[in-house]
């Protein structure tokens, strides 16, 4: 395997795992009304914005699967995988072809946060799995959107640009090695 092919999956994998670990160990200390930003969801949104809906979906599915299986989660496995693959797809569809502006990333994060958390809650209601009353669910979803937007406003644009740069470098490398991208 050439360096070109190996660089991007490695960086993405590390990014998702880092988001997952920080989510469970750091975010509980930084909550607003008991709800903190969903770091893994924001990483998936960044991937969707940077690479388009195909990559966003694949990364969302993989990241969701990891969230479903990693401790301390106990919900039915596959629920976050479904929610995040949809988030990756949606984030990829709003991708403008140029570099996404600050406003676009924040709006995309807000929409995806609401969509992803609602989808997750909905699957929980269907499966009757770890869900309380609907008003309480809505409270958490909305507080989560606020927390996600705050973090997205600070960081998401930078992460998206970073991801694009890696992809660009990979493509140049591929051209150098194989003669085509």
């Amino acid at each position: 395997m050439t360096r070109a092919a190996g660089m991007r999956p490695l960086v993405l994998g590390l990014l998702v795992v880092a988001a997952l670990v920080l989510q469970t160990s750091l975010v509980p200390h930084l909550t607003w009304r008991g709800v903190g930003p969903d770091l893994v969801l924001l990483v998936v949104v960044a991937c969707g914005l940077a690479y388009g809906s195909r990559e966003g979906m694949l990364i969302g599915f993989a990241a969701g699967l990891l969230v479903d299986l990693a401790p301390p989660s106990d919900h039915v496995a596959g629920r976050w995988a479904l929610a995040l693959l949809a988030v990756g797809y949606v984030a990829g569809r709003v991708r403008p072809d140029g570099s996404p502006s600050w406003g676009t990333t924040v709006v995309a994060a807000a929409a995806c946060s609401f969509f992803g958390a609602s989808l997750f809650a909905l699957s929980g209601l269907i499966l009757a799995d770890h869900v309380g009353a609907v008003p309480a669910l809505l409270d958490v979803v909305l507080a989560g959107v606020v927390a996600d937007v705050v973090l997205a406003a600070l960081l998401l644009g930078r992460i998206t640009r970073g991801l694009r740069r890696i992809s660009h470098r990979d493509r140049l490398e591929a051209v150098r090695v194989h003669g085509y991208a």
Binding site: Y51, G52, S53, R54, E55, M57, L58, F61, G64, L65, D68, V76, A77, G78, R79, A81, L82, L85, Y89, G92, R93, R95, S123, L127, D129
Partner: peptide
């Protein structure tokens, strides 16, 4: 950059079958 329909279907089915399996 958009996924083919079969990929979408495969991933959604994978998630749903995982849910059913775990449940």
């Amino acid at each position: 950059g958009t996924p083919s329909r079969s990929l979408v279907a495969a991933l959604v089915l994978a998630s749903v079958s995982l849910m059913l399996l775990d449940r």
